[in-house]
Design a protein around this nucleic acid. Structure first.
Lengths: 200, 200, 200, 200
DNA sequence: TATGAATGAGGCTTCATTCAT
DNA sequence: GATGAATGAAGCCTCATTCAT
């Protein structure tokens, strides 16, 4: 009996996952607003009505996809933070980790930028990927400023925002260079720009 | 007779302007894809059908708005470039100028990011605001690298892209700080990050 | 003074004619229902509003074009009828005359077939090109039947309708043969088919 | 389960049929271009959107209606052709058969004439009802000419076209006589007109 | 739970017609 | 009389959402 319930739960979970994957694929292919629920479900090989057994709107799907990515990123980054290093090293490491994960789920980033736009249902769209991400970066920067490693004449949230901006726009880059390498170079510039001059 | 025609043309020009302004307002308020043509024309206080006397699609309106801004930015920047200065000074000046103009037409920037998304009519959406903007920045950076003022271990197009990213995402910033000041601080970091270390 | 009025009338007449010609051209090019008033007036090189100084609807234009053709055809045919001949000769002659004129204004025939369809304003569309055409044919046939030249076991209006049908559909013919020759052959068949067998 | 699906498919088929019938009725009532999709669906007692679950345009509906009729006609005619008779008899029989079927679906014929007009989507409108109809007639005529039963001084395609023209315009006839009788009389004339004089 | 047909609101676009100049 | 910008009705079509099976 318990197994049967488990099996059912598993099946349900599978359908949900199928929808999420199909949605990700369609979002990447046609963009968020040009993707219809019918389109997603067709890609998923499921009936249209089934969608509403798992989600109540396209926005919710997007939110879920984002949450998943966010959790992955957070986990990786938190793990990295456990070993003690200089703020610079830590920040660099975090950036590399993030870049890698985002690269593997690239579709999600553009989505955020476009979907967050001015949706009719803005409450359903989280501000950014940040929770557990933005905070972490900001914490590292604060620490770096506190110990004199980073310049203090620029507010930490500005610096965090700048890091963010690098991720967001690099996802769109048309340059020949790879996403991760592109991020690496920009982070290098940023790190050199925020390093306290007397420090080195 | 000529006057009569002139008068009419003038009125037509005004109507066009009214529509453009209403569109800008609505785009800013609800976002590009959430703005309907009916909405624009209602905001403009004109009949729906009138829209098609001036534009053939929402995309064309956006393109027109963008072109207008682009031209303003280009003019300002080109004027700034005529006086000879160090690459650093020039870049800083350009950034300040651009920031000012973009600040006054803030709505347009988010538009580009969202509209470019995956439109059904992508050919109608120019890649960015850049023509005469991106090129200018890149030229300044090249010159700075050539004379040893800027680091050469990062390709100039990466740096240009980074400047772009600052504009794009700062337009969305929720921080308390003003747009122009925000840009100023980020540009400061960037300039410090790309300055050749031996140079100073 | 009188001249001035005449001149004005002439001018007015010219504009009217210009519109009629443009309409004929557009009808032929795009079909009746796919032709817009704006399209006609653009082809005429006149302002849209001007249309309503001369006609009150597209249907009226069509009616006018048809009336013109009808009058031409009638005139020719009546002239032909003045000389006395056998009914067969007369019918053949009429058919040839009609074919020639219709060929020169081919566009009008298809129009009738399609426009008469089920227009919203059916009262404005005359039944056919016939007045002074259908009647004439019918009279010739009646005469032919009366003098034993044509078979009498088929009502004359059926025969007239058959002649009509030849004109109507031949206007659409995709065959290589010319319109007039095509008509000639079909009329030959028809004449042989209605000739009283004992007569010859 | 299979039954359930079957039931649904059956219902779907019924809805499709309902729409086709409503469309036929509306086309007949108001003509093709004066019939709106909303009108059809209202006549069908269904929601507007439902239309697009079955067809993608009015043209497709027309095409479907025509195809159905064409198939019926072809079947009947082919059956008639299996018994061997003289070309004259065969042609007469075919004409009678066709007349009967067309009479029962009279609406479709005018449609073809009007719809073929100059549609914006001409590729979607087949040239005529002919496939398996025009060809058949032409074959009979060729055979009749070959065996000296029909006159050979008129190309067979002209004769076929003439038969066609009889059907097309008789569908519009305002005469008191019935469609089938009307056709019968005209075909009699035609047959007499194409019979080789020496043959009888 | 899965399905997919039905629905109608809402967006886009065309166009005949009006009217101020 | 000539003009053409303004208009809104009306048609087309898409799509999120519901609901009976």
């Amino acid at each position: 009996m318990a197994e049967r319930i488990n099996l059912r739960k598993q099946k349900k979970f599978q359908a949900r996952q199928t929808i999420l994957n199909a949605a990700a694929q369609q979002f990447e292919l046609h963009g968020f607003s040009n993707t219809s629920i019918a389109g997603i479900m067709q890609a998923a090989g499921l009936g249209v009505g089934t969608f509403y057994n798992y989600f109540s709107s396209k926005e919710e799907v997007l939110m879920t996809l984002a949450k998943n990515l966010r959790e992955q990123v957070s986990k990786k980054i938190l793990a990295a933070g456990e070993v003690k290093r200089s703020a610079t090293e830590l920040l660099e490491l975090c950036c590399v980790c993030s870049a890698k994960l985002i690269d593997e789920n690239r579709f999600i980033l553009p989505l955020f930028i476009s979907a967050s736009e001015h949706s009719d249902k803005p409450e359903q769209i989280p501000q950014s990927l940040s929770p557990g991400f933005r905070e972490l970066f900001e914490e590292i920067i604060l620490r770096g400023q506190a110990c004199g490693e980073f310049r203090s004449d620029v507010p930490p949230n500005i610096i965090t925002e700048m890091i963010h901006s690098i991720y967001q726009t690099t996802a769109f880059s048309k340059l020949e260079i790879s996403f991760q390498e592109n991020i690496r170079l920009k982070v290098k510039i940023l790190l050199d720009g925020i390093r306290e001059k007397n420090f080195s």
